[in-house]
Design a binder for these strands. Structure first.
Lengths: 342, 342
DNA sequence: CTGTTAGCGCTTTCAC
DNA sequence: GTGAAAGCGCTAACAG
């Protein structure tokens, strides 16, 4: 390949200096219009393309932003990412996507890679298996790399977060089931060390108490956001002496597993058991029995997270209290929980 | 923030030179064991982390690899990416994921960004809306950046590709439907300028001809890989005077749309119409009526693509004929096409 | 308005 | 085995 052309090549050809070329290319106002034109034309002719690496080395900015999610093959995270991309691309940033597969080890590794890539910031949804320690996040903070949480967050000083009101979402889901006449509502939770899951649980619990129903802790099972795990947990529920008449799952995937298990036993949905999932994954809409679910406005969540990052980058060192953005959840009611119409 | 520590800081502290530190850190054999240890310890103490940017600038290698796919929220692409990551992470590379959303404009933009990030290579599945021109790919080749296609490829000199045998997949899908007794098999194709879609079509056609059935071109509709598009196309098919008794879709998403449309008309699957999809997306397994589909071993495809890239990087300038890897498709038979058992 | 100079952090030849 | 010095490509402070 022909060596890549640099500003020096352009400079030499034009008998000017590299600095001038650099300035012309970067729209520095003190450059004469004629020089600027000349440089731009020559640059085009010579197929010049800026070496961002050098620029990044010099400026300390890479214009790369890391996004860390548990997985990319869920519509929710895919859409959050899309929202982030939308906003960040427009500002000249590039987005590097990493998956943790809910493994602490990969989370650490990802942060390392991103740090190596000299990212200007990290937007992340923490992994499920996270320990209590925060050294990982501290490493970013110490390097003054802005860190923004979305969805699965942790309360850490100096870290902004964008979430939905998970308590409210849990409350509304349970209230809806109660309105349908359900009295023993089970809950497929997830690792409750993670706030969002705990909040969904708390909201669910509060609704039950507020309606004067009995709250039975044994109806709450922590399970991963996976189809098989949902089935497994549901087996336990259905085998109880007093099985539930509704299941509120904090994951659409687990809800799907629940539905499979329930149907396999010939139990009817929603007549015998109502189901509510979480995240409004497309399949909830497409299934033969559409599933009620909670929409988290992922696109919006992504856009806002990106905006929060941009704000932090701008303000630089100035210590401004970290922002906590809370979006409104929306319960999308479908057949799986409409006892009234079944 | 405390300024990041560099090899110079370490050097100063140890009264040696940065070059020595660099060598020690990089495992250069000519460094005494004692110095190496000292350097390593001090580096750890001082929280030293290598600045990959500088290293990249120097070496011309960024250890970043770009992966461009139409979308990330499909299980197929998500798994291909996972396969790629697996292999590449182990070699110290980092993976930057970009989406084209099947838009030519974004495809160009993505290539630009990746070029800016000085990626050492690009693995991609071309976008649907690609024109006939290849300038984009040429830009990569001119810069000697290895380009590997997977799944959606184009025949371009010097570009390796990893795909499945789409002709065979199409053939087997159609043959299976014929074995079930279907006689008028429709095909939801996709942009046939893209080889894989054309090959699936050709295989399907050949199976029909080989079995002495009538081939009716009007049963073939080009449609995007989307649920709604699948429904729309199916409307046309069902409204025909002689509607099909089977649909082979080159996309699971379109197949899902087809199923919805068919059911909404009270037509039975598989008794009246058999359905075969493509890509073995998880929902095909989870649906109440599990859908027959073609598995493309995405993990394997990703791993191999990554390996092909590594080989090309190694061989450097040497012109070696581009590799064309073809994997075997596997038809996963489920209820949606099992007339015999319905 | 443009040139000079230095340096971002690292690697690498060439000496000794 | 280690040091000195140059350079990857770009930008920015300082001159003029």
């Amino acid at each position: 390949m022909s060596k890549k052309t640099t500003i020096y090549d352009i400079a030499k050809k034009l008998n000017i200096t590299a600095a001038t070329v650099s300035r012309a290319l970067n729209g520095n106002p003190k450059i004469s219009e004629s020089t600027r034109q000349l440089v731009n034309e020559t640059a085009k002719e010579m197929n010049y393309e800026q070496n961002k690496l050098a620029q990044a080395l010099k400026s300390g900015k890479s214009y790369n932003v890391g996004v860390i999610v548990p997985r990319i093959d869920s519509n929710f995270f895919a859409l959050v990412i899309r929202g982030i991309e939308e906003v960040l691309y427009a500002k000249g940033y590039h987005v590097i996507i990493c998956q943790t597969h809910d493994q602490k080890k990969l989370e650490i590794q990802n942060i390392n890679s991103l740090l190596n890539a000299q990212v200007d910031g990290v937007l992340m949804s923490i992994s499920n298996s996270g320990s209590e320690e925060n050294e990982n996040f501290d490493r970013l903070l110490k390097k003054n790399v802005p860190l923004i949480f979305f969805d699965r967050k942790k309360d850490i000083d100096g870290i902004s977060a964008v979430t939905i009101d998970d308590f409210k979402a849990g409350y509304e889901a349970a209230q809806h089931l109660i309105n349908q006449g359900c009295k023993r509502i089970a809950h497929l939770s997830n690792n409750r060390k993670i706030q969002i899951f705990n909040n969904r649980y708390l909201g669910y619990k509060q609704a039950i108490l507020d309606n004067g129903l009995e709250f039975d802790e044994s109806l709450v099972i922590e399970t991963a956001s996976k189809v098989e795990e949902g089935s497994k947990a549901t087996k336990i529920l259905l085998d109880m002496e007093m099985p539930p008449d509704a299941i509120f799952s904090s994951s659409d995937f687990a809800a799907l597993g629940a539905i499979q298990e329930i149907k396999s036993r010939g139990i009817r949905i929603p007549q015998d058991i109502c189901i509510v999932g979480f995240a409004n994954e497309p399949f909830t809409r497409f299934m033969e029995l559409p599933v009620t679910s909670v929409d988290q406005s992922p696109l919006e969540m992504g856009r806002i997270s990106a905006q929060v990052f941009l704000d932090e980058v701008d303000k630089g060192k100035k210590k401004i209290p970290n922002k906590q953005v809370v979006l409104n959840p929306e319960l999308i009611i479908r057949k799986s929980s409409l006892k009234s119409e079944a």
